[in-house]
Amino acid sequence: MTKLLSVRLVAILIGLGFAIVALYSFVLGAYSAATEEAPDHLPYEDPIDFAFSFDGLFGTWDQAQLQRGLKVYDEVCSACHSLKYVAFRNLEQLGYSEAQAKAYAAAKQVPGIDPATGEETMRPGLPTDYFPAPYPNAVAAAAANNNAIPPDLSLITKARGDGTNYVASLLVGYQEPSARMLEEHPEAAPGPGLYHNIYFPNLNLAMAPPLTSTGQVTYDDGTEATIEQMSKDVAAFLAWTAEPTLVKRKQTGWPVLIFLLFATVLAWFSKKQIWAAVKPKRQD
């Protein structure tokens, strides 16, 4: 008995100890919070909701849009950004034929080995090759881009919160900092080689606006290539590169859920029936 009492006594002392230290930290923290100014956050904007065709529970790819997005990536972004997890053969999923994917690959130069000399050379791509990187290494990429490394874009829409909307917003979000912004946050003024963008968490990034004029890319399907259209298309394309299985995933989910719902309802009625016999009854 006394032994057990002492277990609790020790516990009470330890408990009070932890509580006192935590409260002591609280008091000092409260004091400095009251006397010091809290660091405030840069007022960047949340991404615009562009309502992509593949959003929501029943979303599907808009293949024409993905093809347009590929073209934007190909003609603009690929100058600086790699796409290393995507192979040319994957383009067949965008509605291209095997021959088209092959031709697309053959038009690209990828690193290879000269079969005669064994030296490193460039050769035309094969469907099994992956998209080549624009720079040989990170140092070269940084040197060409004001010390910032353009990230690989394969996974970019998953690597940012609300990623697809974010990428599209970022591309349309370049603007001069407002006078009010500069007054309240002088640090929001772009430094040398930086560009102001209201969707970028730092408000300034090292990527010059890549999409600057309507018609910068000529779409094969006659869609008017406004900046917003190109931004949405390339963002949709990058959503596909980040998760080519996205639509298949949603489409697989439905039968699974319907089956489970059915099985669970069945289990519910079985439970009711089995338990009915042993539920208390009124004796009347």
Binding site: L23, A30, A33
Partner: peptide, 26 residues
């Protein structure tokens, strides 16, 4: 790790230990 989260977590931490080690036995 900013205010008010740090202060709130300090109060909650104090209660957590008080709950199990002081309040429960008493």
């Amino acid at each position: 790790a900013e205010e008010p989260y740090v202060m709130l977590s300090q109060l909650a931490t104090a209660y957590y230990f008080l709950h199990f080690l002081v309040i429960l036995p008493i």
